[in-house]
Design a protein around this nucleic acid. Structure first.
Lengths: 131, 131
DNA sequence: CAGTATCCATTAAGATACTG
DNA sequence: CAGTATCTTAATGGATACTG
């Protein structure tokens, strides 16, 4: 839908960096909301509205945009039930489930980073909690 | 320097998400260039120009912006030698070194993702290679 | 309920020229 | 060499109203 400048330096750099598996992986999980959405779906199937409530502060537009990308990237599955009112369920794919242990490590590293750089939270928090 | 709309929803969301150690960690390592820069500095001290040559295609402006952020975030150290012409060395901190095993896991996951989603590279590549 | 469509604001990234 | 400064473009994120 949007204009694509396939030959802009921006796009060239993006493609170049995506050849690196690591940059590629970071792009799939990056963005402001994706990891949070995936976290909400851990061990659970949720419908659109439930997801929106749990993520909190996300607009419907951003939620659907992120879900579409995650779906296209094979990280969530979308199941639409042909009922009225509509019901659509989202859940993690195995590929996404495989990435969970890595998030946990990153989370622990993030907490360590906070402590060592003095960016500590004003209150303690358990691993995995991310309201 | 730039205008800051501290109370925009954008900023509020950003702060909110940063309370999550995982989103926080992803923000520290995210962006187009950071992981690549950190990778170049693994086991090596490099000066500005060497870094620019190795990262390839990055502008001086972007490189210095990323380096400043990495320095402020305690991930690289900057050592300026008082000589003419100037010489500035960059190297990883222990905190950054601690994160390397996690990148490797993400990298492996990225490669797996490619295979399973049909986004495979047109040629094989070794782990850790990211020209 | 589960989205779309439209428009606007903010941030990230790049090109280029210049300086201590 | 190691940056700054300034300007432009591209991408992301948000508000709001509307629809099947």
């Amino acid at each position: 839908m949007g204009k694509r400048k396939l030959e802009s330096t921006n796009m060239i750099n993006e493609r170049h960096l995506d050849e690196c598996d690591l940059s590629y992986a970071l792009r799939k999980l990056g963005g402001r909301w994706k990891i949070l959405i995936l976290g909400k779906l851990e061990n659970k199937t949720l419908r659109f509205k439930e997801l929106k409530e749990r993520v909190g502060n996300i607009t419907e537009r951003m939620l659907i945009l992120q879900l579409k990308e995650l779906e296209a990237d094979g990280l969530v599955t979308r199941t639409a039930h042909p009922v009225v009112p509509p019901r659509v369920d989202y859940e993690l794919t195995q590929l996404a489930i495989d990435s969970i242990p890595i998030w946990r490590l990153l989370e622990v590293w993030g907490a360590q980073h906070r402590n060592e750089t003095g960016n500590s939270l004003p209150y303690p928090k358990e691993v995995g909690s991310c309201d």
